[in-house]
Design a protein around this nucleic acid. Structure first.
Length: 364
DNA sequence: AAGTCGGGGAG
DNA sequence: CTCCCAGACTT
């Protein structure tokens, strides 16, 4: 890495001034209460601003305070996270809320180190809460900041490498100003999100253009250096057979254990192959067709998911076999599925089921 | 240091 | 199709 092209305080001033002038009017910028900053920062992890906004607005109607959140059932919390992905974030928020309610009087601590003791709050989020909500001089580095600073300072190493990450945090630790740390941190991220784009950065609109090494050397297209990611088509295919059965107006659902993939969510009971379904559920099944009623495919971060849905009739009393994936079964009214935590894949399947049933009713 | 954990919008 | 997003946690 090259020597800094200008003083850190000059650089920070440029960022803060530009941020004050051009910042977007986002919901979480109306109110800097620590609880609200916390929830927004968790929702924004690996998630785009546009995707978060409706979830953020809905959240505080149902969970207006840390205490309300601590006292809510996990199903309710996951229902309000349905479709956002990375569901451990919601589980960790719930666990943290109970911890905050019990031991911190419902208040988030101001100290970054103390914040990091809460599940789901890592180095980035602790810095964000501490600086934005409490005005503490704490740095933060996210994907936007890493890209921006790798260009400004011409960091040549892979920005995911331990060495580059260490450099980035050291840089930010030095740069973050005592006077307006929250605005500086948000300003860096805002620049990364709107100006210092991955491709075709808008250097003409950047307050750091005069001091940016990559721009000076016409290398914004080469930086940051990043390892190639795995192509979707190279991800292993996970095929599952799911059971769709309705009895007395209720659909049979399975509750996943609260960890791992889709932890704590509800879905159609599914197994690696169709013959295993009856054993999992202790039911006598007769399938309605030789072909699945529908097939849903979806790409996840590390695999491709393909779920075949098999309509069937069932006899017997459900009893969940010992399972590494499920903790419970439940017959549930199809119309009330919005009150449970379900993934986007399940949401699509349930919607498809509802539409097919509506068509069948019209034809009768 | 590498793997796991979702989902969707942009191009 | 591929790319990447206001990361954290486990192994």
């Amino acid at each position: 890495m090259s020597k800094s092209p200008t003083s850190y305080s000059d650089l920070a001033d440029r960022v803060v001034r530009h941020y004050k002038k051009t910042k977007r009017d986002l919901p979480w910028r109306k109110n800097r209460a620590a609880y609200k900053v916390w929830i927004s920062e968790i929702m924004l992890q690996q998630t785009r601003v546009a995707a978060v906004i409706p979830y953020y607005e809905r959240w505080f109607n149902r969970f207006p305070t840390v205490e309300a959140l601590a006292n809510a059932p996990l199903d309710d919390v996951l229902a309000h996270w349905s479709g956002l992905g990375y569901y451990s974030r919601a589980r960790n928020i719930h666990t943290s809320a109970k911890e905050l309610h019990q031991h911190y009087g419902g208040q988030l601590p101001q100290d970054a180190k103390e914040l990091r003791s809460l599940p789901g709050i890592g180095r980035y989020t602790a810095g964000a809460i501490s600086s934005i909500a409490y005005g503490k001089r704490e740095p933060l580095v996210d994907g936007n900041v890493a890209r921006l600073l790798s260009r400004v300072f011409e960091i040549e190493e892979d920005i995911k490498s331990t060495s580059a990450i260490k450099q980035l945090w050291e840089l930010c630790t030095k740069m973050v100003p005592a006077g307006s740390p929250g605005e500086f941190n948000q300003g860096l991220m805002e620049l990364g999100a709107l100006v210092c784009l991955p491709k075709n950065p808008k250097c003409g609109h950047c307050p750091l253009e005069p001091v940016c090494l990559a721009h000076a050397h016409d290398r914004t297209g080469e930086l940051p250096v990043q390892a190639k990611r795995k192509k979707d088509s190279d991800k292993p295919l996970l095929e599952r057979d799911a059971l769709f059965v309705i009895r007395r107006g209720k659909i049979l659902l399975a509750h996943r254990v609260p960890k791992g993939l889709f932890g704590g969510l509800w879905e159609l009971p599914q197994t690696p192959s169709r013959p295993e379904l009856a054993g999992l559920l202790s039911l006598s099944l007769s399938f309605h067709g030789k072909k699945p009623g529908m097939v849903h495919s979806q790409v996840l971060s590390h695999r491709r998911l393909c779920i075949r849905v098999w309509p069937a009739s069932a006899e017997g009393r459900t009893k969940l076999a010992a399972s590494t994936s499920y903790q419970a079964l439940k017959w549930y009214p199809l119309s009330q599925l919005t009150t449970l935590g379900i993934s986007s894949a399940s949401k699509a399947i349930f919607q498809n089921i509802a539409e097919l049933r509506a068509i069948n009713r019209e034809q009768q």
